[in-house]
Simulated assay, not measured.
Amino acid sequence: MYRFMKLFSALICALPEKVQYAIGTFLGELCWIFLPPKRRRLAIGQILFCNITSDPKEARRIAKKSTTRFGRMIIDVLRYPEIKDGRYKDMFEWVDRKYLDDAMEDGKGAVLMAIHSGNWELLGGILASEGYPLISVAMKQNGDSDKLINEYRQIMHQHVTYKTGVREMIKELMNGSMIGLIMDQDPGDKGQLVPFFGYETLTAVGPAVMGRMKDVPIIPVTIRFDEFKGKHILTAYTPFYAEHTEDKRRDTAVTLTKLNEWIEDYIRRYPEDWFWLHNRWKWTRRYYAGKIEVPPDPMAK
Rank of each mutant, 00 (worst) to 15 (best):
L15S: 02
Y288N: 15
A59L: 07
P195I: 07
D90A: 12
V209D: 01
G206D: 08
I33T: 15
E58V: 13
R167P: 02
M139E: 10
T67D: 10
T201F: 11
G206N: 02
S177E: 11
E105L: 10
I126H: 02
T235I: 09
D265E: 14
N260D: 03
R41A: 12
Q46W: 00
L27R: 03
I233Q: 06
N260I: 06
D76W: 03
H278T: 04
I23A: 07
D96E: 13
R41P: 07
R79Y: 01
I267K: 07
D144K: 11
P195H: 01
R87I: 08
D273E: 15
E121F: 07
G165W: 05
Q20D: 09
Y241A: 00
P37E: 15
I52Y: 10
E151G: 09
I267V: 15
Q192W: 05
E243I: 02
Y88E: 10
W120Q: 09
R39N: 01
I179F: 06
R212Y: 00
D55N: 14
R167E: 04
G24M: 07
L7H: 10
I83Y: 01
I83D: 01
I267W: 02
V216M: 06
R72W: 08
A253R: 14
Q185V: 15
D184I: 14
D251F: 00
G109M: 00
I233W: 02
V77G: 04
L27S: 04
H278Y: 14
M156C: 03
G176K: 09
R285P: 04
G24H: 05
